[in-house]
């Protein structure tokens, strides 16, 4: 899910990453709305609020909105900064670090909310700021490593793209275009995952309250560990498979008595008849292995 970068990513890589991350973003967005009365996974609306508050002259809210938008931006910047500058130290690690940071941010929100939160405005602002940063991290990572194919924290672009694609599919030549079909699959799955995440959060919030962030952290942990578990299992299967398929140790070729005699005789012509015979045939399994 996190191992591959840009064009090397397969549709399945993007589908897994997009679906799980969109589910998480949907959960976080609804949780932030239910707890703090503000969305945290998209910033488009905040640009409108910024303009509205500016015209009203409410500079406190203008500053808050600027701060949150900046933190979303900063999260996205940090995420891609880590991805492009730390790839040499391991692509998987560079991709996993932003997810771990996001997990840390949301864990702080969950723990603080459950044990310390006094519901003051300052606390609300700071906790929301952390969530904006976390969502920026997530969007920066998914968009960055998928070559802008996967965006998980908002649906404005996805809705637009899906509308365009579905209108294109009214023509047969586009319906037969695998690339477009795959794109539609990816967007649709992201779309439904986001909604499912939002609904799930709405349903479990009354019981869990701030505990909802622990569920989100578990899901993020799954994203991080998926490749480790997958690669580990793959290696195990390959190892077991190789042992089962590995050739038996090469036995001493069966030679006739005449051949054995010929071998024991001193070379007269300087040619080894047994060797000559063997070299004339197809290459041995060992040779094949060596060549490979």
């Amino acid at each position: 899910m996190l191992r591959r970068y840009s064009h090397r990513r397969t549709l399945n890589d993007n589908l897994r990453l997009g679906t799980l991350m969109a589910f998480i973003a949907g959960m976080v967005n609804v949780a932030s709305f239910l707890i703090f009365f503000s969305f945290s996974s998209n910033v488009t609306g905040y640009f409108a609020i910024f303009a509205a508050e500016m015209t009203k002259g409410d500079y406190y809210q203008v500053l808050m909105v600027i701060g949150w938008i900046f933190l979303f931006f900063a999260g996205s910047f940090t995420s891609n900064f880590i991805v492009i500058h730390f790839r040499r130290r391991g692509q998987y690690t560079a991709h996993a670090v932003p997810v771990i940071l996001e997990m840390g941010c949301l864990l702080i929100v969950g723990l603080y909310g459950q044990f310390v939160y006094q519901e003051t405005l300052r606390e609300t602002e700071v906790l929301l700021a952390i969530m904006f940063f976390a969502m920026g991290l997530q969007n920066g990572l998914t968009a960055g490593i998928s070559n802008f194919a996967v965006k998980t924290t908002h649906l404005t672009g996805a809705t637009t793209d899906l509308g365009i694609l579905l209108s294109m599919f009214t023509k047969e030549k586009f319906r037969n275009n695998t690339e477009l079909v795959n794109k539609a699959k990816l967007i649709a799955s992201t779309f439904f995952a986001f909604i499912t995440g939002a609904l799930t959060a709405g349903l479990i919030y009354p019981g869990l309250q701030f505990g909802i962030f622990y569920v989100v952290c578990i899901l993020l942990m799954l994203v991080v560990l998926y490749d480790v578990i997958y690669v580990g299992l793959l290696r195990l299967v390959l190892t077991l498979g190789t042992k089962r398929l590995s050739p038996t140790p090469p036995s001493i070729p069966h030679r006739t008595t005449a051949q054995r005699r010929a071998l024991t005789k001193p070379f007269v012509s300087g040619k080894d008849p047994a060797h000559e015979k063997a070299s004339a045939g197809p290459p041995s399994r060992c040779e094949e292995t060596t060549v490979r």
């Binding site: 809210q61 003051t120 405005l121 602002e125 929301l128």
Partner: peptide
């Protein structure tokens, strides 16, 4: 209490 960005 005030919630959100101070608008609730």
């Amino acid at each position: 209490k005030l919630k959100g960005r101070g608008h609730i």
